[in-house]
């Protein structure tokens, strides 16, 4: 099936170019080191900011990978191969998002407890942290397809991509980091996670259409 073929190809390409997978994690490790250096190593100080920092790191480290979702394909011409194959374009976008999530989202989810541990995030928050990222990382990938489709034609489009995607990510950050924060305070994160899931459903339905529209305009 076309959907699977595209997912398989993208995962294989990322797997061969390992940097795609470990780059976000190295980025997280680098930045997480800076917090104790700049803030002081007091466990209490770090634990206080940990929910937000762990979440922002997951978000930022994904953000730096978004540009290439369509840009690589555009540059080597393989975008034309699947656009002209007659494959349903929003479906192609979905498979690109799924492949991006498999190669970037999952490592980021699995790595989050490590940054959490380094910042003294209470261990009982790890479950909610990973759950919130499990809901949110697909949103990153889906919004990433829109951003990447918009800027695939532009040199150094990374900055513009951040400007375009950041406002859309603001609610995701609020609900996601909020969920972890509520857990560390001993409250229920149910409301936050529900709202986050709402965002995910909305993205799942609208983002492929928006990204497909952007690709079409870009190929005109």
């Amino acid at each position: 099936m076309r959907f699977q073929a595209l997912v398989k190809r993208d995962v294989l390409v990322s797997w061969r170019k390992k940097s795609n997978i470990y780059q976000p994690l190295v980025f997280q490790l680098l930045i997480v080191t800076m917090f104790p250096l700049g803030l002081g190593a007091g466990a209490q100080t770090l634990a206080k900011i940990a929910p937000a920092v762990v979440w922002i790191l997951a978000l930022l480290s994904t953000l730096i990978t978004l540009e290439n979702i369509f840009k690589d394909d555009f540059e080597d011409g393989s975008l034309g191969v699947y656009v002209l194959s007659g494959m349903n374009l929003p479906l192609a976008v979905l498979s690109k998002a799924l492949a991006h999530w498999l190669t970037t989202g999952i490592p980021v989810i699995l790595f989050a407890p490590v940054t959490g541990m380094l910042l003294h995030l209470p261990e009982q928050a790890n479950g909610i942290l990973m759950l919130s990222l499990l809901i949110a990382t697909p949103i990153f990938s889906l919004l990433g397809t829109i951003g990447s489709a918009l800027i695939m034609n532009i040199k150094n489009g990374g900055m513009l991509l951040s400007v375009l995607v950041m406002p859309l990510l603001a609610p995701v950050l609020i609900f996601g980091a909020g969920a972890v924060l509520e857990t560390t305070l001993g409250n229920s994160a149910y409301g936050h996670l529900m709202l986050l899931s709402g965002c995910a459903v909305l993205c799942l339905t609208l983002a492929p259409l928006a990204a497909a529209a952007a690709i079409k305009i870009n190929l005109e």
Partner: peptide
């Protein structure tokens, strides 16, 4: 689209797939 095939300046080969994998992908996507 069903009846035409276009080959442009950008060849559309994926650099880190093998020749076989490249052809296999084009076959499945079509």
């Amino acid at each position: 689209l069903q009846n035409s095939h276009y080959l442009g300046h950008k060849l559309g080969n994926k650099a880190n797939l093998t020749c076989l994998e490249n052809l296999q992908f084009v076959a499945s996507i079509n």
